[in-house]
Design a protein around this nucleic acid. Structure first.
Lengths: 196, 196
DNA sequence: ACCTGAACACCGTTCAAGT
DNA sequence: ACCTGAACACCGTTCAAGT
């Protein structure tokens, strides 16, 4: 890539991160190009679709989550690893309002640029879920796709300002529905009630 | 209202119901006016904001839900009444893609035209929830606002075509999180396992 | 009283013209 | 190779002009 092209690419990515953080995944591409100080055509040259741009923004975060899943699997009890991964995934999603709706569309569309990231995320979750299921601490009648959907639901709740103040409660309710234990997943740091 | 005005109003409402059912709450107002065969200004005269139009579309459904809540309360065990109400509320919401995001915004905004409908729906749910809580079959640490949020989450899941095929599963998972019984809320018709 | 559609300021997307 | 911005077909919203 030519030096000027690379500079534009990076400037666009940095600006897009700002704007999408502020306005969500439906942010105006014109606005991003404007604030990056490049022509609109330049944005389209580097990022031919909105998915490509989003994918560039998300890739680092999602690679990080996959590593994190491996760490958690090695270092924590299966149920705690699962819930912690779930919480951190929702946290990453909350950086870009509306991103899970885009990912939900991409996971059923192999042609989408975001497809790979979706599959990776789902696989990491599925692995931790299977671990907890093997240990008998997660419901047996769920799979990675269900987990993915529940991440979407939690991200949606966090996106609505009326619900965001209760995000932690709602996380507890839904995480609790995944685990077979009646222990609150909010109290994972220290005292733990026995699984039933 | 003048006869021609009334005719336009009703034509707009009927067309809006069609278009919003097809395209969701962000449907083009221009398209609605066009398909209704009236000028765009006429749409704005009768429905000065998108909320006013949505409210007109939803009012009947929500009035019906409130009556339904009273019926269920009188005729079913509290937990079953709650879950059935939940299911039917999600069903109504699923007629208009994205409507719960709009209602989530409206419930925190007393100036919104949709505010009253939101409060009504939340109150009906809260009443059924309180009944189930009094009977010991719903978690005590939830309120109407949580229920409202969970309806939103379920509606969002139903709006995503990738998740919609599992809507019934996800309903079961979340409804199960509300109830204190471990019985599946999917098997309410007939055999019921005892509440724990 | 009510209706209409042009006008304005935005979008996403494409592409001819420039360097 | 790469960049630019005009051009096109859309929006939501307002409002002067008509009946």
């Amino acid at each position: 890539m030519r030096a000027d092209a690379r500079k534009n690419y990076e400037q666009l990515l940095a600006t897009a991160r700002e704007v999408v953080t502020e306005q969500g995944v439906d942010a105006s591409l014109r606005d991003i190009a404007r604030r990056a100080g490049v022509g609109l055509g330049t944005l389209y040259r580097h990022f031919p679709t909105r998915e490509v741009l989003l994918d560039a923004l998300l890739r680092t975060s999602f690679d990080g989550l996959t590593e994190r899943a491996a760490e958690l699997e090695a270092s924590r009890p299966p149920d705690e690893a699962l819930v912690t991964f779930l919480r951190e995934t929702v946290g990453v999603a909350s950086d870009f309002r509306g991103v899970l709706a885009m990912m939900a569309a991409a996971i059923a569309d192999e042609a989408s640029t975001l497809h790979a990231s979706c599959v990776t995320m789902r696989a990491a979750g599925a692995r931790l879920l299977a671990g907890a299921q093997a240990a008998g601490t997660a419901r047996a009648d769920m799979d990675g796709a269900d987990l993915f959907a529940l991440v979407g639901a939690l991200a949606w709740l966090g996106d609505q300002s009326a619900f965001a103040p209760r995000a932690e409660r709602h996380f507890g309710i839904i995480a609790g529905a995944i685990l077979t234990s009646r222990a609150s997943p909010l109290t994972f740091s220290g005292e733990r009630t026995g699984a039933g």
